[in-house]
Design a protein around this nucleic acid. Structure first.
Length: 227
DNA sequence: GCGACAG
DNA sequence: ATCTTGTCGC
């Protein structure tokens, strides 16, 4: 069950056209939550954002690490809000090639549906992989919401242009909420459940949190090795 | 024209 | 996101 291939847009205008086209392919279905391996992805940057370091962390249902992989490569596309996927997907795909275990579902560090054109990094990656994917962002890109209660697990719908595009979730007492939205082959309730089931004692779910640490550590080690 | 703006 | 040491607090 493979997905589409990654196309490289020449500029932001082309990227926008591509997103509007890909948006039609997204499928938000109910998710049974029945995964064996879940993969978190994150990208760190060095050399003034010229080089990207992607990390993929695969966890089992007990949240124990089952596999991981990293990749580093020059990043071409600039960071433009709303077009993050064109900047991060190439190096992410490279990292995923190094996995020996095949994940059932993916969590991305960024938005899914909660995006200006309804196709954030989580959605785009999901289409390419052809697997359930969701986004968990640390800050808002688009939408409006009411403050969730300051209690673990509480949430409020994230509204954008009259539609609910995700959930603003309090993943820890008193901590800033995170923005959860479906990417592909999953719905809002499913995405919320996956996040709640992969939280440990931190604000971010373990797959993404550990992928972030791995990417940071890899970057740190490689910059000292080169100089 | 003025702000907002994932990582 | 990145550049960066120590420091306050659970």
């Amino acid at each position: 069950m493979n997905g589409i291939s990654f196309e490289v847009p020449k500029n932001v205008a082309q990227a926008k056209e591509l997103q509007e086209e890909l948006r039609k392919e997204l499928e938000f279905c109910t998710y049974d939550g029945d995964w064996r391996y879940i993969c978190g992805v994150d990208v760190a940057y060095s050399k003034g954002s010229r080089v990207g370091v992607a990390a993929a962390m695969v966890l089992g249902s007990n949240l124990a690490i089952e596999d991981n992989s990293v990749a580093m490569m020059d990043v071409n596309f600039p960071y433009v809000p709303g077009y993050l996927s064109f900047r991060e997907i190439p190096v992410i795909l490279e990292a995923l090639k190094g996995l020996e275990v095949e994940p059932d579902i993916f969590i991305v560090d960024g938005q899914g549906l909660a995006h200006p054109r309804g196709i954030g990094l989580g959605c785009h990656l999901g289409l390419i992989l052809g697997k359930p994917t969701l986004g968990v962002a640390k800050s808002l890109l688009v939408g409006e919401f009411e403050e969730p209660e300051f209690v673990y697990g509480d949430w409020r719908p994230l509204l954008y242009k009259g539609n609910t595009v995700g959930r603003v979730v309090r993943t820890r007492d008193w901590a800033k909420p995170v923005f959860v939205s479906p990417g592909h082959l999953i719905d809002q309730e499913g995405a919320y459940n996956v996040v709640m089931n992969t939280l440990h004692r931190y604000r971010l779910p373990e797959p993404t949190r550990l992928a972030h640490l791995l990417a940071e550590r890899t970057k740190r080690e490689s910059r000292k090795k080169k100089k």
